[in-house]
Design a protein around this nucleic acid. Structure first.
Length: 491
RNA sequence: GGUCCCAUCGUCUAGGGGUUAGGACACCGCCCUUUCACGGCGGCGGCAGGGGUUCGAAUCCCCUUGGGACUACCA
């Protein structure tokens, strides 16, 4: 088998979309699995929809996911340039070649005429498509138009009869009748190629062995096969990935359905490991029941044959679960590192963060690692440790469902007393002391612990009380206990 | 409208002639427990419908239905 060369070819018309990210992932995986090359090619042939910082976002998002490319922007390579806008002469040359060979022709139809034609077709409920108006122009007529400086496009001359047999690796052979195909544009009037021409020319010139792309392209497959045939080139293997449907089941996934850009997932606090794993299983399945894969493990297990063909509803619930899995796999140091930007954004830690404060953050990680599922939840989880003071909690929250204000004040006062006497503020000693206190007051441990918890954290759901108190430190604990007592007395 | 693709729990899916139709997420219950999580155990829940083929269809074929894609000088 020839060397595997796959390419991810996004169009810089927006930020890297989650669907594109999956395509890139499968590309990368196939290259890795086979020891082949992963190429990044920027398809910037639409000058109207071009978004200036889209290329940067695409590169950054790919890198964030760990999908580095062997050839492409910044990486270089011998098959470049990797921006289609820098290959215009190539497309023009090949388009012209087709014209010379009588397989394509100049078309001088104005956008207005085309719009009019389309309108009529719609009204007549006829099949849509170019009416081949310029297909049989005589050389003289063509010269006349060109001499007049009229803009033109180059259209591919689809055979009037016959069928084209195409092949998708997952779906097998499909046959398209030429009668359903129109003479599509391959070179636009601004000298830029359309996707059809550019991708075929580049895939051939770059030695691409497998084209992995979204299912929305399968309808264009016959055009691409026709182009390969016209050039006398061998088509690559095509793999069309199932489309992502919106979670509500209405149409394909789009911006209206919440986060669809890779960067948005990053900002929401998802780990790239989780996103990658989630995307991996959306359209691909191993032969085992395994569900958790690192990028390397996935590269080992991946195979094109196990990609599915049915449309995928893009529902996020499993992503949260994956995020939890990978969050818990991180070392405390690493977790802290990843949480840091979120805490800085919320003003809970300075930027840059002094080493001692970072060390304290690392110290807190074991307390919250099992309790957050998004990095963005870190501020809520750890805020009361990092802030000197907390808002006085609501009396009702301190007292709890079953307690009385009087009893709660007593509990808190007794707690202050025993804690003040403590010299060893370690977890174990704290537990011993407070359990003994509950015993002495003849109360259930929970009855004693809950008011303390709320008093020092302001929250009812927190890490274990003793580890939390130890991490907070004696002074803060005492201050907040006092504050709670004051609040209860006033209320 | 035309062309094409797709069809197993709510979701992602395994299963490709003989299975009590398997797993994961979500949901519910129980256990663990100072709260919340984590974890463990259990439960709920599915082959779109109709015809064939076959001794036997979730599995193969056809039709219907449903969903989706495309229908640009966008990709």
């Amino acid at each position: 088998m020839d060397a595997v060369r796959v390419r991810f070819a996004p169009s810089p018309t927006g930020y890297l979309h989650i669907g594109g990210a999956r395509t890139a992932l499968y590309d990368w995986l196939l290259a890795r699995k086979t020891g082949g090359q992963f190429i990044l090619r920027i398809e910037d042939t639409d000058r109207n929809r071009f978004v200036p910082d889209a290329v940067d976002d695409i590169k950054a998002s790919l890198r964030w996911m760990g999908l580095t490319w062997d050839e492409g922007p910044e990486a270089g390579g011998t098959a470049g340039p990797y921006f289609q806008s820098e290959r215009l002469d190539l497309y023009q040359k090949y388009a012209e070649e087709l014209v010379q060979a009588g397989k394509a022709y100049y078309c001088f139809c104005s956008p207005e005429r085309l719009a009019e034609m389309r309108k009529k077709q719609e009204e007549a409920k006829a099949a849509s498509g170019y009416d081949r108006h310029c297909r049989e122009l005589s050389p003289e007529e063509i010269e006349e138009h060109r001499a007049a400086g009229e803009p033109y496009v180059i259209r591919f001359k689809v055979p009037r009869t016959g069928k084209t047999k195409v092949r998708d690796e997952l779906r097998g052979e499909m046959v398209f009748d030429h009668g359903t195909l129109d003479d599509f544009v391959i070179l636009k009037s601004d000298g830029y190629p359309t996707y059809h021409l550019a991708s075929v020319v580049d895939d051939h010139l770059m030695g691409i062995s497998h084209v992995i792309r979204g299912e929305e392209w399968i309808i264009s497959l016959p055009r691409h096969f026709l182009l390969y045939e016209a050039f006398g080139w061998q088509p690559p293997t095509f793999v069309h990935l199932p489309i992502f449907l919106s979670p509500d089941g209405k149409g394909k996934l789009s911006k209206r359905h919440g986060a669809t850009g890779v960067r948005e997932f990053k900002e929401k606090g998802y780990l790239p490991e989780a996103l990658v794993n989630f995307l991996l299983l959306l359209g691909w399945h191993p032969s085992t029941d395994e569900e958790v894969f690192t990028l390397e493990e996935a590269a080992e297990a991946f195979s094109v044959e196990r990609i599915s063909t049915s449309p995928v509803s893009f529902s996020l619930d499993k992503l949260d679960w994956y995020n939890g899995i990978y969050l818990r796999r991180l070392s405390h140091e690493e977790l802290a590192q990843r949480c840091l930007p979120f805490l800085q954004k919320d003003g809970l830690l300075p930027d840059p963060c002094p080493p001692e404060r970072f060390a304290y953050l690392v110290r807190l990680m074991p307390l919250i690692q099992e309790r957050i599922k998004l990095l963005s939840e870190i501020s809520q989880a750890v805020g009361y440790f990092l802030q000197e003071e907390i808002e006085p909690p609501e009396p009702a929250l301190i007292i709890g469902k079953k307690g009385t204000p009087e009893e709660t004040v007593t509990i808190l006062q007794e707690t202050v007393a025993v804690i003040e006497a403590l010299t060893d503020f370690g977890e174990e000693n704290l537990e011993q002391t407070l359990r003994a206190l509950a015993d002495r007051l003849a109360l259930k441990p929970g009855r004693v612990f809950m008011p303390i918890r709320v008093a020092v954290t302001g929250q009812a759901a927190t890490p274990g009380l003793f580890e939390l108190l130890a991490a907070l430190g004696k002074q803060k604990v005492l201050n907040r206990l006092q504050q709670a007592i004051t609040v209860l007395r006033k209320g």
